[in-house]
Design a protein around this nucleic acid. Structure first.
Length: 321
DNA sequence: CTCCGGACAA
DNA sequence: TTGTCCGGAG
């Protein structure tokens, strides 16, 4: 039943420190046309046949097929210790994090307006420092341009001016107009309530779509994976492409792999935790393994890979031109 | 100068 | 898979 390749699990005797009867159950639910895969943690062992006799739309599986290859659904050894260690580091460190800067945006607004503010905040916040995003949101709010109907009517240049200097403000201004129009036409000024529909909005990709589901709808459909989560999970050996040890190559692959074993109650907190950790300790370039309290558990610790020199050569060359 | 970063087109 | 968009920080 279990993936045989993942069966050897050295040092797993204490991997579930505490509840000995904990059982992780993977279920595939059908909702209308969609199939949603979720992971549920049971704290009391339950006969499997009882589960199988449940609603016919729920089926159990111990492994999942992704891109034609089997991925392990076994949690990596010591993941709880690692997570706890990172939490401790984060409680003393101070990172500029604040990934949920968008949740502040208009949390005094009525639900529909608040959700729209969350969507716009998410759009603006990508590749943008939080205080810059916040300023842009404030200016939009002051000008009454934080709702679908008003943005739809507003001039794109006006929006562009208000959101400056948010990163990629030109494209984002255009996307805001399109999004506002779509929300007005199709959703009565509200935002889409499903992941699939959010992904259809221009400028909204997987990372922001999950963020909006989490914060806007309080509906956790998946883990919000950004480059920090992607990088750190790979360094820790928490995710892999198949039963091989290959790193995942995209944040989406990381999300799929991580969701196979990470308990759902960690799906939301993992993002701010790892983002902060990634900004202070586990940085993309020259990670500070010396001050990392979980380096003993990290297969990548003290193994910095130097940047390819070709890039800097090319840069200094282009400087001459 | 170099680095950082989601979405998306090529 | 790579480059592009766009600023700001270091």
């Amino acid at each position: 039943m279990r993936n045989p390749a993942s069966e050897p699990n050295p040092g797993s005797e204490s991997s579930n420190g505490g509840s000995a009867s904990e059982l992780r159950v993977f279920v595939r639910k059908k909702r209308g046309r969609k199939t949603i895969e979720t992971q549920e943690t049971k704290y009391e062992a339950e006969p499997l046949d009882q589960k199988l006799r449940g609603p016919p739309e729920i089926e159990e599986f111990g492994y999942k097929q992704v891109n034609g290859s089997f991925q392990s659904s076994e949690p990596p050894p010591n993941w709880e210790k690692v997570l706890e260690g990172i939490r401790k580091m984060r409680s003393t460190e101070d990172a500029p994090v604040d990934t949920m800067g968008c949740e502040k945006a208009g949390n005094s607004l009525p639900p529909k307006e608040r959700r729209f503010a969350v969507l716009v905040s998410s759009l603006l916040s990508s590749q943008t420092k939080d205080n810059v995003t916040h300023g842009a949101i404030q200016r939009l709010l002051q000008n009454g341009l934080l709702a679908a109907d008003t943005i739809d009517k507003a001039d794109e240049a006006t929006i562009k001016g208000l959101i400056y200097p948010v990163g990629f403000y030109t494209r984002k201004a255009a996307n805001m107009k399109k999004i506002a129009n779509i929300c007005l036409m199709k959703y009565d000024g509200d935002i889409p309530s499903s992941l699939e529909e959010l992904l259809l909005l221009p400028g909204i990709g997987p990372k922001m779509a999950h963020l909006v589901m989490n914060v806007g709808w309080n509906n956790v459909q998946g883990i919000c994976v950004d480059t920090h989560v992607h990088r750190i999970c790979n360094r820790l050996g928490w995710v892999s492409k198949s039963c091989t040890k290959q790193k995942t190559s995209t944040p989406e692959e990381t999300r799929e792999a991580l969701q196979l074993w990470l308990p759902k109650e960690e799906w939301v907190p993992i993002n701010p935790l790892l983002v902060g950790f990634g900004q202070t300790v586990c940085t993309p370039l020259r990670p500070n393994c010396g001050m990392c309290s979980v380096s003993d558990f990290c297969p990548s610790a003290f193994r910095e890979i130097s940047r390819s020199p070709s890039k800097s050569k090319r840069s200094s060359l282009s400087k001459k031109l």
